[in-house]
Design a binder for these strands. Sequence first.
DNA 1: TTCAAGTTTCTCGATATCGAGAATCTCGAT
DNA 2: ATCGAGATTCTCGATATCGAGAAACTTGAA
Lengths: 165, 165
Amino acid sequence: MEDEVDRLVAAWRRERPDLDVEPLEVLSRVSRLARHLDRARRLAFSEHQLEPWEFDVLTSLRRAGAPYQLSPGQLLTQTLVTSGTMTNRIDRLTKKGLVERLPDPSDRRGVLVRLTPEGRDRADEALAGLLAQERAILAQLSRAQRGDLAALLRRLTAPFDNIPG
Amino acid sequence: MEDEVDRLVAAWRRERPDLDVEPLEVLSRVSRLARHLDRARRLAFSEHQLEPWEFDVLTSLRRAGAPYQLSPGQLLTQTLVTSGTMTNRIDRLTKKGLVERLPDPSDRRGVLVRLTPEGRDRADEALAGLLAQERAILAQLSRAQRGDLAALLRRLTAPFDNIPG
DNA sequence: TTCAAGTTTCTCGATATCGAGAATCTCGAT
DNA sequence: ATCGAGATTCTCGATATCGAGAAACTTGAA
């Protein structure tokens, strides 16, 4: 089955036969698929009155385990946003009663962000919904293919995640 | 080599052993890689005084071939943004002299967006830079692996690209 | 002890995006 | 001809993000 990237690559080969556009076969698909997933997630979360950015923060705290707290800096590496954005997100989640800010006892510059009980419940509910949706999307692939795909992607993400990026 | 998604999945298995989080192995990597690519692209384009969103629009027109014009609607399906966003993008690119708006001779509701000669040059320059950067990122994989990865991703993108999404 | 460099979080203005609705036009059915 | 449903683009207010710099604190070395 053809996709939009097939058409895009064919167009480039016609217009710029001097260039090797092979990299787009992989990376344009990654970018476009991510945008499609964003839209799908927005829809899935709206049933739980959650925005994708709220889900990202709440689940980062949730999977940290009890007492469900992380520093803003740790949240940055998990969510890949800037520090100004994270401050703003924490403010808004605090107003909604889903997280609270505590002083870090071991570093007076620092802050700990902790999930409230309601925040924890909301994260758990939304996660189950997200997994159901993702399973449906991945039904296009066999279990073995999903494993191969994950392994190939890991080789691309690991350099970004491990060197100071 | 481990990546952030390996840690994320391990954390979920510890905190929610009742859930099957296998879908995250693929789709969380897609989303995170896309964000890393966004950042890298922003950097690569800054040498050419271009924003990623400008690149997306200009290259969509460029690869359409002479006379380098598409309707706003066609640009939507290529860039996956909303119509309000596209109107705004065309306005700003027009002010910069990189595109111009023409009435569609065959449909008076419609508009055609055409690349100016300068817009075309800017698109061509930035594309070469982007491909160089993407080749470096993909050097982690063999040619055969890149082919496999592209084919697996196509199976996921095709449903989004072909059914009315 | 003191200082400089580094870390951590926050501030705030600029900017891009979304989304719902309005305005205009097309096209098929009657 | 005319009407209504659908298509196409644009408007505009609300909102989220970025990014550069400020403020507060820590750490190691002199």
